[in-house]
Design a protein around this nucleic acid. Structure first.
Length: 280
DNA sequence: CGGCAAACCTGCGAGC
DNA sequence: TGCTCGCAGGTTTGCC
């Protein structure tokens, strides 16, 4: 499910109920999510205060008052539900529950169990496997045309596959890769190394724009993504190409042209959507 | 080393 | 109605 905008939306929703709060109770209903939870997971968290809730790529990072960091990843179907009063009965897929000293209940639900949680000392965070390889945050000043060009240089893989590499664009996922390339007018099939100069500049800008716009409207709610208060994200209504095979892309006559609208192809095992007349 | 398919797990919609 | 198949927003592994 969640790419950078969805994860950021979730983080923004959780911050008011978690930041500065004490975890009065933590319940773990199964031994594993994608991976086994660390030994003593609930015990280690109980009584800890959350100092800050951050994000790196698709990871949510909760800094604890004992020098450790709680790492949260939503996988494909993970979501957090927040209840301020007495919570309803647990769902079969509610795997972990956090209760705060302010009386909030936060449940992590994840049917597919591709999500995971882990506890790491803050000093070791930089060495945590999937965090250490992340590229710069696409919305930070570090990310720009220079970085993008240096990553793409020499790479033979298609540009779409390249920008989904978390070492290139931290937090990029399948939806926003297609949407960014559409905005930049670049074919997803183009060799990564050929995206340089003006094209790279357009792409870097398109990536930032798409992510910022998506965050503004709460991300994309296709199946699973919900805001922690249960509300929906709205960016799915703004998709130019994602999931729109056979339809016209915005402002284009591709639907009636011989290209028959937005195309769907598969790259590295993932669906890619693009307009062959607007993207070269 | 680079690139790709498969695996992990469940649910849902389409088609028969 | 009920079954099977394909597909889903992510990451890791192992193979060529």
């Amino acid at each position: 499910m969640p790419e950078l905008p969805e994860v950021e939306t979730v983080r923004l929703g959780l911050a008011p109920v978690l930041e500065g709060r004490l975890l009065s109770r933590v319940l773990q209903r199964r031994a594993d999510l994608r991976f086994p939870l660390p030994v003593g997971f609930a015990r280690c968290l109980t009584g800890r205060r959350i100092l800050a809730l951050g994000r790196r790529g698709k990871f949510i990072l909760a800094t604890l008052d004992d020098g450790w960091v709680l790492i949260l990843h939503l996988g494909m179907s993970g979501r957090f539900k927040v209840f301020m009063g007495p919570p309803p009965a647990e769902d079969v897929h509610d795997h972990v529950t956090f209760e705060t000293d302010a009386g909030a209940t936060i449940r992590f639900s994840d049917p597919r169990r591709f999500g995971f949680m882990d506890l790491v000392p803050e000093a070791e965070l930089a060495f945590f496997p999937s965090l250490s390889g992340l590229g710069p945050e696409p919305l930070s000043a570090e990310f720009g045309v220079a970085w993008l060009e240096s990553c793409l240089n020499g790479r033979k893989t298609p540009i779409k596959t390249a920008i989904m590499d978390q070492a290139v664009v931290a937090g990029m996922g399948n939806i926003y890769a297609s949407e960014s390339l559409f905005r930049a007018g670049i074919s997803p099939k183009r060799k990564a190394a050929s995206v340089k100069g003006q094209r790279a500049r357009h792409l870097a800008a398109a990536i930032r724009e798409v992510l910022v716009e998506a965050i503004k409207v709460g991300g994309s709610s296709l199946r699973d993504h919900r805001l922690p208060d249960g509300g929906f994200g709205y960016f799915q209504h703004r998709f130019a190409v994602y999931g729109r095979q056979g339809l016209a892309c915005p402002g284009c006559d591709c639907e009636i042209a011989k290209t028959a609208g937005v195309r769907r192809i598969v790259q590295a095992g993932r669906a890619t959507f693009y307009c062959s007349s607007r993207q070269r």
